[in-house]
C-alpha cells in the first residue's frame, strides 16, 4: 500500500493520485502540481499563473487563507496591514495569520514573514525580508516590494502553501 503524504490515506500500489485529497502519489509524476499536465498553464506556458488571470483586488472586507497541508482555513477582517508569520510569545508577538500550528517552523516560515497591505491602490503582498522567501504564483518576491494580489492567488511562505481569497 502507498500512503499519501498529505492526508495519510492508504492506496493500492499503482494508484497515481490520492483518491481522498488528489495529491500525486508518485515521485516521477509531477511533484510540483502547479504544472499539472492538463492545466491550461502547461498548454500555454506563457499564460500567467492562476491568480493573475483575474483583476487585482482593489477592495476587500475580509481575507481568507486556506492552508492545504493542515486543512485549516482562517478568515481575517481586512485592515491596513495583516501580518503573516509565527507567534513569538517571548516578544508578545502574534501575527494576524499565525502559521505556528501549521508546522510553520518546519516549512521555513519566519516570525514576521510577510504582510498584506491594503491601501487606496489596492491590496498587495510584501515579503518582510524573510529567511526562506515568499513565492507569489511561483514568482519569488523581492523583499520589501509590494505586489498586487488577486482572488485565489497561491502563495508559499518558505515552503508552506497558502491560498488567499478575498471577499
Amino acid at each position: 500500500m502507498v500512503k499519501c503524504r498529505e492526508c495519510g490515506a492508504s492506496e493500492y500500489e499503482g494508484v497515481l493520485f490520492c483518491q481522498e485529497c488528489g495529491r500525486s502519489l508518485t515521485e516521477t509524476v509531477n511533484e510540483s502540481t502547479a504544472q499539472l499536465p492538463f492545466s491550461e498553464s502547461l498548454l500555454d506556458p506563457d499564460k500567467p499563473s492562476p491568480g493573475q488571470n483575474a483583476a487585482p483586488v482593489l477592495e476587500a472586507h475580509q481575507v481568507t487563507f486556506v492552508i492545504p497541508s493542515s486543512g485549516r482555513r482562517v478568515s481575517v477582517p481586512m485592515q491596513k496591514e495583516i501580518r503573516i508569520g509565527r507567534a513569538d510569545p517571548s516578544q508578545s508577538f502574534v501575527p494576524e495569520l499565525d502559521l505556528t500550528g501549521d508546522s510553520g517552523a518546519e516549512y521555513g516560515v519566519s516570525r514576521l514573514h510577510a504582510i498584506i497591505q491594503s491601501s487606496r491602490r489596492g491590496v498587495a503582498l510584501l515579503d518582510k525580508n524573510s529567511t526562506n522567501g515568499t513565492l507569489l504564483n511561483n514568482y519569488r518576491l523581492p523583499p520589501e516590494l509590494p505586489y498586487p494580489l488577486h482572488n485565489g492567488d497561491e502563495v508559499r511562505f518558505g515552503r508552506l502553501l497558502v491560498h488567499i481569497f478575498f471577499e
Partner: peptide
C-alpha cells in the same frame, strides 16, 4: 467540507480558477 476544500486546492493548483472559485 473537507473534500471540497481539497478539491478547491487541487483545482487552483491545476489552473482551473473558475472551477476552484465555484468549489470555494
Amino acid at each position: 467540507i473537507i473534500r471540497l476544500r481539497r478539491l478547491t486546492t487541487r483545482l487552483l493548483e491545476s489552473g482551473q480558477t473558475e472551477l476552484a472559485e465555484q468549489a470555494y
